[in-house]
C-alpha cells in the first residue's frame, strides 16, 4: 500500500506568477535536451498489476513452517479421503489373530486389542477431526460475521446490548453446557460440533465488530451511501471484504482448537463413542495397555500433535501474510 499523503500542498499565486530568472533560460546542450513527458507518462503506473490475494500467497509461501503445515494437512486430508476406500482393513470388527501387533509393513502403526489396524483407525479419526474443525470454523465464520457486522455497523444502543449478551455467554462455564448438550443430543459428530460452536463464534464476532467500526466511516463507504447503499450492501461489498484478513486469521485458529476439543471430549468419554474411531477414543482405549503396547498410544497422540502444530503454523503464516503490520 502506498503511503498516505498527509501534507497539504497548496497552489499559490506566488508560484504561478514568479518570473523565471536568467539562470533558468541557460541553454541546454543537445544531449541533455529531452521532450517533457505527456501527462499520462508523468503519472505512469509504477506497480505491476497484482491482486491482494496474489500478494498474500507470495508472502505466505516464504514462511517455511506454514508451508510444511499446509503440506501435512493436505497430505493427511487426501489420505483420510482415499486410503480407507482401497484398504483391505476396516475400522471396526474383531480380528483375533492380529491382536496387539507392533508396527510393520503390513500394519504401519500396528494393531489394537481387537486386532484392528491402527493406521486405518487414525485415518477414520482424521475424517472426524477434519470435519469437526472445518464445519465448526465455517459455522463460527458465518455467525461471527453476521453478529459482529450488525453490532459494529449499528453501533450505539444495539451494539451495547449485543455485546452484553456476548459477555454473558462467555462467562458461562464451557464444560457445563458442553456436557449438557452432549447428554441431551447424544454422542455424535453433529452434537459435538454444536457444543463446540455454542460460544466459540464470539471471538470472530468481536474481531468483525471492531473492524467494521473502524471501516464504517471510511470515505468509500460514504461514497456508496451517497448512492443509496443499504447497511446490508455495505457489509457485504465494502466492510466484510476489507475486514477479511483479521477474520480469516481468527477463523484459522479456531480449527485446531475445535479439533483438540473434540479429541479431548472423546478421550473423556463424552464425545464420539467407540467403535467409531476418533483420535480421542483411540487414545482413551490405549491408556489401559500403555505400558505393554506403547505404540497404541503413541501414534494417535503423534497425529493429534502434528495436526495441532500444522494448523497453528498455518494460522501464524496467514496472520503475517494477510497483515504484515500485525507481525510481532
Amino acid at each position: 500500500m502506498a503511503r498516505k499523503k498527509k501534507e497539504h500542498v497548496v497552489l499559490r499565486q506566488e508560484d504561478m506568477l514568479r518570473i523565471p530568472d536568467a539562470e533558468t533560460y541557460r541553454e541546454l546542450p543537445e544531449e541533455q535536451f529531452r521532450i517533457c513527458p505527456e501527462d499520462d507518462e508523468a503519472e505512469a503506473i509504477v506497480r505491476p498489476s497484482t491482486t491482494y490475494w496474489h500478494d498474500v500467497w507470495q508472502r505466505f509461501r516464504r514462511d517455511p513452517m506454514a508451508l510444511c503445515g499446509l503440506v501435512f494437512i493436505v497430505l493427511m486430508t487426501l489420505a483420510a479421503i482415499l486410503i480407507p476406500r482401497f484398504s483391505p482393513y476396516s475400522y471396526d470388527g474383531f480380528f483375533f489373530k492380529s491382536r496387539n501387533l507392533g508396527p510393520s509393513w503390513e500394519h504401519l502403526c500396528g494393531t489394537d486389542q481387537m486386532g484392528r489396524d491402527i493406521f486405518i483407525r487414525i485415518l477414520y479419526g482424521a475424517r472426524i477431526s477434519l470435519t469437526v474443525g472445518v464445519v465448526a470454523a465455517a459455522i463460527n465464520f458465518v455467525i461471527g460475521v453476521i453478529y459482529g457486522g450488525i453490532s459494529g455497523y449499528a453501533g450505539g444502543r444495539t451494539d451495547m446490548i449485543m455485546m452484553r449478551i456476548v459477555d454473558i455467554l462467555t462467562s458461562l462455564p464451557s464444560l457445563l453446557y458442553i456436557v449438557l448438550i452432549m447428554l441431551v443430543l447424544g454422542s455424535n459428530v453433529g452434537s459435538v460440533i454444536l457444543a463446540l460452536c455454542f460460544t466459540s463464534w464470539i471471538g470472530t464476532a468481536r474481531v468483525v465488530r471492531s473492524e467494521v467500526m473502524r471501516l464504517k466511516h471510511s470515505e468509500y463507504v460514504l461514497a456508496a451511501r451517497l448512492s443509496g447503499a443499504t447497511p446490508w450492501y455495505l457489509l457485504v461489498h465494502h466492510l466484510v471484504p476489507n475486514a477479511m484478513g483479521p477474520i480469516i486469521v481468527s477463523t484459522a485458529f479456531l480449527i485446531p482448537s475445535a479439533i483438540f476439543s473434540e479429541a479431548f471430549l472423546s478421550f473423556l468419554g463424552i464425545g464420539i463413542q467407540a467403535p467409531q474411531a476418533s483420535w480421542g477414543t483411540l487414545a482413551n482405549e490405549a491408556i489401559p495397555v500403555m505400558m505393554t503396547y506403547p505404540h497404541q498410544l503413541f501414534f494417535p497422540v503423534a497425529f493429534i500433535c502434528l495436526t495441532m502444530f500444522s494448523f497453528n503454523f498455518i494460522g501464524d503464516g496467514l496472520r503475517d501474510a494477510l497483515d504484515p503490520r500485525m507481525k510481532h
Binding site: 498516505k4 491482494y52 470515505e219 468509500y220 461514497a223 451517497l226 471484504p241 476489507n242 477479511m244
Partner: peptide, 15 residues
C-alpha cells in the same frame, strides 16, 4: 447529487 472526496487513498475501496 454526488461528492468528490478529499483523500484519494481512502475514498476508493482497495478490494
Amino acid at each position: 447529487m454526488q461528492m468528490i472526496f478529499q483523500d484519494p487513498y481512502a475514498s476508493l475501496n482497495p478490494r
